[in-house]
Design a protein around this nucleic acid. Structure first.
Lengths: 248, 248
DNA sequence: GAGTGGTCTAGACCACGAG
DNA sequence: TCGTGGTCTAGACCACTCA
């Protein structure tokens, strides 16, 4: 158990404090690594490993050739499970800009099992990418059997956790939404798409929704960066729903 | 991105292949770092950073003074949300040995808000640690108002996701179970307790359960290592429940 | 004490970004 | 071209495990 508190964690803690106390502000560039290394009288390698700790926490962003930057205070966006819409009251939610790319493809691999369709049956893929300001926030790949997919482009404002909402308007209500949550490192593509460090873990949610006939109407793969997203699942509706949540 | 495929990832991929193809078997020790470094003709520092990649994936376990060991094929244990019991049919579940430590403490910090009790009101903490064979698997800290906590020791076999199950026997059924899922790095204590790398992300679940009167009867903090656990949340019971899940 | 991993140094050289 | 971060080396020294 870490009987040696290792220099890098001391340095990381110091920089972390400087960030949280506002001595280094959001968006600002840190001194160069060489400079910081001499300040702390360590080698650049050690200083870099200290920064790697902060990077894994999503506190800083490293940009090759430019410098290390303090991330803007990550607004925690909460994904609401169970096929329910996040309340629009959430200001963070409304600040998300979502782009959708629609493609067609035949069912392959795990999609066959998840959607319970036969191989090569036609599917529609919606690749949703949400942005918070300039920077990408999270991504989702949603697969729907072709005959169920709306002919017109999906409503962008309600793409993220709500393809099933759209479908609900057309079909009988969903009887089951099953969501499997895992955590892992992002793939190189995901890290590039979401512009996150490959050392920052993501929440990966696999969602399968079925209607009352048991037919699977949607399979979705969501990727949420661990530093700026969480997920909430609630069973049994509450009688008097509350607003503020104080889980600090 | 990643125009330079960096040597360490090549080495990591090579060792990963050797593990997955069985050339190095589970539980076995890898050659020493110095030996591997000379095999790949890299410095020990680079070789160590390659191993760090595998460590972050939960593939290997580093033991100071002994060596690097291939993890036993991690049995994925699924946490079932919504206050529902995991089906006992699951072989992995039955292989879990759970120890419980009970302590009393006054309500403090976020517990006050989560449990909706006044400060310093008496609580009972159940610290549950599940083991799979010799090694710890996951941990849970469960807090229950003193007047609701069973006087006798909790049923060890049903500790993990089911303090509420015990309570359900005594009280009206739960009206709401709310679970917030996040991912983060383990704290040093958690890393030590669960014997995982501090670079391996964990799933952290905060669970709050209320009974039909709206009273919060339980707050729980679960920590599941990301390489050997996932969580499933299902809404609306299915008519014909299925057993096998093929999501590979 | 021999062998292991853990920390750390003081560099070299390469790749990227901006002027 | 210059300053930045990214990769990597060839060591030294320390801490842990086990015989």
């Amino acid at each position: 158990m870490q009987s040696v508190p290792s220099h890098r964690h001391v340095i990381a803690a110091d920089i972390r404090t400087q960030i949280s106390t506002g001595r280094i502000k959001a968006g600002e560039r840190l001194p160069s690594e060489a400079r910081l290394a001499s300040q702390y009288t360590v080698s650049t390698a050690m200083l870099r490993s200290a920064l790697a700790v902060l990077q894994g926490e999503g506190l800083i962003e490293k940009i090759h050739g430019k410098g290390n930057f303090v991330h803007h205070p990550r607004r925690i966006v909460t994904y609401v499970g169970g096929g329910r819409r996040a309340k629009p009251e959430s200001p963070a939610e409304s600040a998300l800009r979502i782009s959708v790319r629609t493609t067609s493809l035949p069912a392959q691999g795990q999609l066959i099992g998840l959607l319970r369709v036969s191989a090569d049956s036609p599917l529609t893929e919606y690749f949703c990418l949400s942005h918070e300001g300039n920077s990408p926030h999270s991504s989702a790949r949603i697969y729907v059997p072709r005959d169920l997919s709306p002919t017109d482009a999906p409503d962008e404002s309600s793409c993220f956790n709500c393809i099933e909402t759209q479908l609900a308007e057309l079909r009988p209500p969903l009887s089951e939404v099953r969501e499997r949550v895992t955590t892992r490192r992002p793939t190189p593509e995901e890290a590039a798409t979401l512009r996150i460090s490959s050392t920052l873990a993501v929440l990966a949610i696999t969602r399968v929704a079925a209607d009352s006939t048991g037919r699977v109407v949607e399979a979705a793969f969501l990727v949420l960066p661990g530093d700026r997203a969480d997920a909430v699942f609630t069973t049994h509706h509450m009688i008097g729903e509350r607003g503020g949540e104080d889980d600090g």
